[in-house]
Design a protein around this nucleic acid. Structure first.
Lengths: 174, 174
DNA sequence: CCACATTACTTGATGCTTCAACTCTTCGCA
DNA sequence: TGCGAAGAGTTGAAGCATCAAGTAATGTGG
């Protein structure tokens, strides 16, 4: 913790660019998903996390932690996904106060259709412009910041993101 | 452009962390501004950009480019800022179709009160956990990504962000 | 000099996010 | 065993962003 709150020139430069990326990158990724799949980044991520889970089910709070969201936000989103037929909710047999979300077959199909295009956009916007050192830098810097944002590690710094093929799931484009 | 849309393990790791940062960092910065000043990051940025401009006035479209937003979004936000008494809008004398936004004295005062706390939070969440190399890495990586996001450079990759003191404006905390 | 496209901006509707309030269940504990 | 606290989840309202459509002013080709 410094005494001086202001940023020096290098920090200033880094911060301005970071702020611009934080504005433009999510907008670009959302635009692709909206256009090609009618999904937001968040609802896609929700489906994707379920698709990675054995049994394709997760309690709402576990899912919320996985996608770094509040339970309230997730509840609203899952309600919409349920209306689309991509997710169902059932009371857990194990505890009366937990609700488990389950990805339906239609939901899994939706993820499978959407994933390649999304992965391609992530590659286009991020990894196509970075060499190996750049990727390493990005991993380091974001790890450091995440440590500060989420000191407990309770929220998933590491959400599986449905951008690598499962065994036997390699798509035709791959 | 690769043939393979999927990400390898290193890219995967970098992307997951980046996605988490893009979720959590704006939320954290918004929380600080909301709590301490009743502003969103975006409305703060709008005020801050005006405060940096000679004459504290900018046409709406120039301001929109500066803060990386659509004109529509800016118009709604400026309407709210106008209601708070921090900004006024007047037709430009130079062209009948441009509206210039002007930061009022109250608006400038608001920025001055809000800036140090916001800068401190940016420092706490980002720069306190990065050494010089980390700052350099962040600047490089974000520059590369911005180049792809905004190839024209038309949107400001470089918004002045009211995080460095103006001459003679160094606060008591500095 | 007049139609037409373009630029600059606003507005209203729609949808997503957040916040606070609420229910229901389970746990702790006396 | 029974009561209060904490956990899990939902809901409704309010705020903010986005989108499509609209107005008004200004260039531009014929």
């Amino acid at each position: 913790m410094h005494e001086e709150p202001w940023l020096d020139d290098d920090e200033q430069r880094a911060w301005r660019r970071t702020a611009a990326v934080m504005t433009l990158l999510p907008a670009a990724l959302d635009a692709q998903l909206q256009r090609d799949a009618g999904l937001t980044q968040f609802s896609y991520l929700t489906l994707a996390m379920l698709s990675e889970t054995p049994g394709r089910t997760l309690p709402m709070s576990a899912l919320a932690a996985t996608v770094n969201s509040s339970l309230s936000r997730l509840s609203h989103v899952v309600a919409r996904l349920e209306q689309q037929g991509w997710v169902t909710r059932e009371p857990s047999p194990e505890s009366g106060r937990v609700t488990v979300a389950r990805l339906t077959d239609a939901g899994l199909e939706k993820v499978r259709q959407t994933a390649p295009g999304h992965a391609a956009e992530v590659r286009r916007l991020i990894f196509d412009v970075l060499d190996d050192t750049g990727v390493e830098s990005l991993a380091c810097v974001t790890a450091a910041i995440l440590g500060r944002l989420d000191p407990s590690g309770g929220l998933r710094a590491n959400p599986l993101n449905r951008l690598s093929p499962e065994a036997g799931d390699r798509p035709a484009t791959g």
